[in-house]
Amino acid sequence: MLSLKSISLGLLVAAFASNVAAIDVTRDPAKVAALKNAASQLDRLALLPDDSDWLFDFTEQKYYTFAPGGVINANAATFPAAVGNGQTMAILNLGPCSMLPMHYHPRASNFVVAVAGTTMTYMFEENGARVVTQTLTPGKMTIFPQASMHMMMNIGCENAQLVSALNSEDAGTMNFGNGIFADGFPADLVNAALGYQDLANNHTAAGIPAVGTGSVYGTKECLARCAARKRRNF
């Protein structure tokens, strides 16, 4: 049985090696701009005249996958009816051993409820604070305060699913690994900040994938355990 410390270290390594975070592209910029500039709620309603304007089907979105997983956001960018309501609703899909790597939301607190599976979560809010760890099974919830760094991993061999509510229609997501290693900070300064370890270099940056669905595969230990379990079941 691995200790919590070893699991946490494995998650950290996985997050550095394969950081990915979904980016929501605004689907109808003209409509969103008109909704934001509308003088009244009645004017906004006139811009959303059809019943279909008020329906968001998470299962029909391109990030709805469990291989390895995906973050599907209903917000101002993806669902114009959300404009003016100060809220994002999200479905988090995590396939077996999949994870959301270390990230934070600069403009929103995040309430996460488990619907299926077993998900380990980790949250670190600021210097001097401790890491808060939770095990979420169906019906259990945790909170990631605004701008707190957090990550989560499906530690089981079945799909996990969570519902996430954020108190902004434009919460934003910043991935730790991408921001530090792949997005332009001077490598010598990053290495100095990390105790002069040669972590920030072209090799590290090249190993961080482009933006994707929001989920990546987690620890090798979990993947091997679930692969062995699958072999035993056949």
Rank of each mutant, 00 (worst) to 15 (best):
Y196N: 15
A39K: 15
P209W: 13
R232P: 00
C222G: 06
S18E: 10
S168I: 05
L45R: 13
A108P: 09
N93H: 09
D28A: 12
G207R: 14
A187G: 05
W54T: 07
A46F: 09
M99N: 03
K36V: 10
G117W: 00
P68T: 00
T219L: 07
G95L: 02
G84T: 04
S98W: 03
P49I: 07
M1F: 03
V32P: 11
N175I: 03
R27E: 14
I23Q: 12
G84W: 02
D188Q: 13
Q161P: 01
M174I: 15
F56A: 01
G212D: 08
A224P: 00
I7H: 08
S148Q: 06
P186E: 10
K230R: 12
V20A: 01
S164Y: 00
L199C: 12
K62F: 03
R44L: 07
D198Y: 06
F234E: 10
R107Y: 12
L223Q: 13
L94G: 00
C157Q: 07
G177N: 06
N201H: 12
F79V: 01
I208C: 13
A187P: 01
V25N: 09
A171H: 07
P145Q: 09
L223T: 07
R107F: 13
P80Q: 03
I91G: 00
M123E: 11
A22V: 10
Q41Y: 11
D24I: 03
Q87Y: 04
S148T: 12
S98R: 05
